[in-house]
């Protein structure tokens, strides 16, 4: 009788923890793999000059559209092949990480900050403040984005900060909408009423009682936006109003290879894979972060 006890005990523990061994490994993987990918990409972006085997913008017309090393006809000199101007795709992808990641992170930080601040202010203060801010948001959403980007590009010249500015001006409105909705829900909650009974100022309520409770949806939207911003930057680059050539960004690389997709698939495919990796990793990481930041889910 007694000898069976430990056995029961371990089985029980598994049941209590709610997860089988393989499920827990899966859960750990969905955290570690995306984090490792993201860290590697960020390190790649930082150390690009040391990692890239070739100059990313050096044209070599004799070596156009060389296939990757592991495909017949490829050489070890260009591991991922070359594009239509004979530039090394690996080197361009490594340098492209710099531009693509920094554009999307900067834009997300700026839009989330502005959108959250305006959303909370509109939702909590109500009245005319809300009416004004929300009409402003509507106007921003109704404004054709490409026209604005072109306008900026023409007036201050194309470049990195023009792209960041254009995408930021276009991107904050959805945050403001979302956060305002969440704030409206929280404004009528019992604990906000309690804070008002205590005499807490509007500032304090917005900062301490409302902001921490809108972080969940905020993080989800922010991580979803990583991929979207990389694609948006690509779209601008494709139209010639993004990062000016020959500087590489993943988006412009995909766009460059579009015409050659039938004879040189590798030109678009490798930067495309990178974009997909970042988007997926960002989403998984966002899910994990959201669970971590919610005290109600932390123990699970």
């Amino acid at each position: 009788m007694l000898s069976t006890m430990p056995n029961i005990d371990t089985k029980l523990k598994l049941k209590i923890s709610g997860l089988t061994r393989s499920a827990r490994i899966m859960r750990a993987m969905t955290f570690y793999i995306p984090v490792i990918i993201l860290v590697l990409l960020v390190l790649t972006a930082i150390f690009a000059p040391w990692l890239a085997p070739h100059d990313p913008i050096k044209v070599s017309l004799l070596e156009r559209r060389l296939p990757p090393a592991f495909v017949e006809g490829g050489s070890m000199k260009y591991l991922l092949g070359t594009d239509s101007l004979g530039r090394d795709i690996l080197s361009r992808a490594i340098y492209g990480a710099r531009i693509s990641l920094s554009v999307s992170l900067l834009v997300i930080a700026a839009t989330a900050f502005v959108g959250t601040a305006l959303g909370i202010a509109a939702g909590y203060l109500g009245g005319r403040t809300e009416a004004f801010l929300m009409r402003f948001t509507d106007i921003s959403m109704a404004f054709p984005g490409l026209v604005l980007a072109m306008l900026l590009s023409v007036s201050i010249g194309p470049g990195f900060f023009t792209v960041v500015l254009a995408l930021s001006i276009l991107g904050w409105a959805p945050y403001a909408r979302l956060i305002r909705g969440e704030t409206l829900r929280l404004r009528n909650s019992d604990f906000v009423a309690q804070a008002r009974i205590n005499g807490a100022s509007a500032w304090r309520i917005m900062l301490i009682h409302i902001f921490p409770n809108v972080i969940n949806p905020l993080i989800i939207v922010m991580t979803m936006a990583v991929g979207f911003m990389i694609l948006a930057e690509a779209a601008l680059s494709y139209l010639g109003i993004g990062i000016p050539p020959p500087d590489p960004s993943w988006g412009s690389m995909v766009a460059d290879g579009r015409g050659d997709i039938d004879r040189a698939w590798w030109i678009s495919t490798f930067p495309g894979i990178l974009i997909a990796l970042v988007v997926l990793s960002g989403n998984f990481f966002g899910d994990w972060l959201r669970d971590k930041m919610d005290p109600r889910l932390r123990q699970l």
Partner: peptide, 19 residues
């Protein structure tokens, strides 16, 4: 305000879940 305080009906919603 400091001298008039309150206890609300629903203890599940009267506290900031993040605090």
């Amino acid at each position: 305000r400091p001298r008039v305080q309150s206890v609300q009906q629903n203890p599940w919603s009267s506290m900031n879940p993040r605090m």
